[in-house]
Design a protein around this nucleic acid. Structure first.
Length: 300
DNA sequence: CACTGGTCCTGGTGGC
DNA sequence: TGCCACCAGGACCAGT
């Protein structure tokens, strides 16, 4: 269940183990993992084979790899000109992993894409539930930043140096739906998933069912502060469990077992007031909250 | 146009 | 023991 902090841990791993490497051969063994690449697996493979990875980037839960210019003299480089290049966009979905392993290491049953690198290692995309995948897409400029086209609609996340809290507060207040749904809307603020939404709302003592537009600016500033704090803490926890063999292990951060205040703690005492944590259905999933610290809004 | 609710997908779990 | 319903959930899509 990778959210922003887990994805950032993966990005750091890719920056360390994959940036600078040349992608040699690519194999796709599950078509669903490349379904977002409309031109198909063969086109994706052709587009990244032989390319040297430049940088590992992230916005919200989206990852992407950029590449150095192809070598001068290749046919492509004449027509490419100054046009913006493409990036390999990766979304982990619910269960995606980006593993860097020795090429002769046993291959996981759910390894759907494998890319050999020029240092003898192999980058493997492992994904049990196949919600994630790879796609090659052109880079476009949005609000002064270069992002892949499928990421163009994704808002800046709270860890982005150019994240503007006041603009985020205004965007949240402009929404007509409940605050939790707005938090999960990646076009408003990106990187927040179901778990950290519940954790942030609990910290800010706001019930997720409250209309976003009805919350005061200070309340929303406080909420965004808690979102950032939860992410920072999870990132600190995740950054420590780092194996050189693996870029990351299932996006887990160690944060899960320890520090969750409400998520998954139905009927257990609220860590602040002791009241039993409540659980309710929300968009075919669950919301956890403290009914005392986060009072349910009055029906209008 | 904005908002809402359904759907995709598979492995693990718990009930009968 | 075996079967099946159910759950997890990010992003997309169709309907209002």
């Amino acid at each position: 269940m990778p959210e922003l902090p887990e994805v950032e841990v993966v990005r750091r791993g890719l920056a360390e183990h994959v940036a600078g490497r040349v992608i040699d051969a690519v194999t796709v063994t599950h078509p669903r993992s490349v379904r977002r690449h409309v031109l198909g697996a063969a086109d994706l493979i052709a587009g990244i084979s032989g390319r040297r990875v430049r940088e590992a980037c992230r916005r919200g839960k989206y990852l992407w790899l950029t590449f150095d210019e192809p070598d001068a003299g290749t046919p492509d480089s004449r027509t490419a000109g100054p046009a913006l290049d493409a990036a390999l966009v990766v979304h982990l979905g619910m269960s995606g992993q980006m593993l860097v392993q020795p090429a002769d290491a046993p291959v996981d049953k759910h390894a759907h894409i494998r890319a050999t690198l020029d240092d003898g290692s192999e980058l493997r995309f492992v994904d049990q539930r196949t919600f994630g995948g790879w796609a090659l897409a052109p880079l476009v400029e949005v609000d002064g930043s270069l992002v892949p086209e499928p990421v163009a609609h994704i808002a800046r996340d709270p860890l982005d140096p150019r994240f503007d809290p006041e603009a985020a507060v205004a965007a949240i207040r402009a929404k007509k739906s409940e605050i939790k749904r707005v938090l999960l809307d990646q076009t408003v603020v990106s990187g927040v998933g179901n778990i950290y939404a519940d954790e942030s709302l609990w910290r800010a003592r706001i019930n997720g069912n409250r209309p976003a537009a009805g919350l005061t600016r200070p309340a929303l500033r406080g909420l965004l502060t808690e979102v950032r704090a939860v992410m920072d803490e999870a990132l600190a926890a995740g950054g420590t469990s780092f194996d050189a063999l693996y870029v990351n292990v299932n996006g887990q951060s160690g944060y899960f077992e320890r520090a969750l205040a409400v998520y998954g703690r139905q009927d257990e005492p609220c860590r602040r007031c002791g009241a039993p944590v409540a659980r309710e259905k929300f968009m075919n999933r669950s919301s956890y909250f403290c009914p005392r610290c986060q009072p349910v809004p009055r029906r209008r």
